[in-house]
Design a protein around this nucleic acid. Structure first.
Length: 255
DNA sequence: ATGGCGGCTCGCAGCCGA
């Protein structure tokens, strides 16, 4: 079973890329972030024609998340339980006996911003939700754009980024706290190439020069980690015409 | 690397992303 995540930065613009990637890789589950469209405009017929079911929680202009899957999902839940947030950033469902939680964590903008405070508060509520979900669903994967580089090895220039948003200590602590609820960063279960990133700035030829960050993650519970076979970042779509600034990340499980 | 790119909008400039 293959489970993947991709911040597409507008599903309107990236639909051809998504369809191409589905056809090539045939993941069982693909979690999308930043679809940037309302539910009425979700391209369901195109997704269905590609052989996938879809659930989605859309929003105009910003945010928006979706889960595509080969088999139908059940127990859909939007948002973080017990936390009112008008921004559509979280979508959960059960697929093939696995709880899948798709997240688009707030960016935070800069460490002195109100948006940074919102990000840290949001992560606290996510932690509470996650703790409850893990207790209910031992086989759980939470994946998406976390907007946090876990360590210096996930940053092209750790000195330049030290203390900056996406790399700051409070953000990294918040991610560690999520993991302490019983999760592992599946990417690091395996030997990986040095300077593995999942996002590159559109500016300054960031991708060509590999000036990136690894901020898109697939976190798994112990029950799933035991069955994880490999995790890869597919840089290929980042090199396509008019790409998303993020690359897909995919984990393979022996189930 | 201190600028830029790219997506969005009752757009033609400004916000946001990371």
């Amino acid at each position: 079973m293959n489970i993947a995540t991709w911040n597409v930065n507008s599903l309107n613009v990236r639909l051809p890329h998504v369809l191409q990637w589905l056809e090539t890789h045939q993941p069982d589950v693909l979690a999308l972030q930043e679809i940037k469209l309302v539910d009425e405009k979700f391209p369901l017929s195109e997704i269905n024609a590609a052989g996938y079911q879809a659930i989605f929680s859309g929003q105009k202009t910003y945010n928006g998340v979706a889960i595509l899957s080969k088999i139908a999902s059940t127990e859909m839940a939007k948002g973080i339980a017990n936390y009112v947030d008008e921004q559509q950033r979280v979508l959960a469902a059960t697929i093939n006996d696995i709880r899948v939680i798709n997240v688009y964590v707030p960016n935070g903008q800069s460490v002195d911003s109100d948006k940074y405070h919102y990000k840290l508060t949001w992560l606290e509520h996510l932690h509470a939700y996650l703790t409850e979900q893990i207790a209910r669903y031992p086989k759980l994967v939470i994946l998406g754009d976390f907007n946090i580089a876990p360590g210096d090895e996930d940053v092209h220039d750790p000195v330049l980024w030290e203390g900056q948003v996406l790399c700051s200590e409070p953000e990294r602590m918040a991610l560690q706290k999520l993991c302490s609820a019983g999760l592992t960063d599946s990417f690091r279960l395996f030997a990986q190439p040095e300077k593995s990133f999942s996002w590159w700035d559109y500016r300054a030829a960031g991708f060509r020069r590999n000036l990136g960050l690894r901020i898109d993650h697939i976190l798994v519970t112990e029950a799933l980690a035991k069955t994880c076979k490999q995790v890869i970042i597919d840089k290929v779509p980042r090199g396509w015409e008019r790409p998303s600034d993020h690359a897909p990340v995919m984990a393979e499980f022996a189930i």
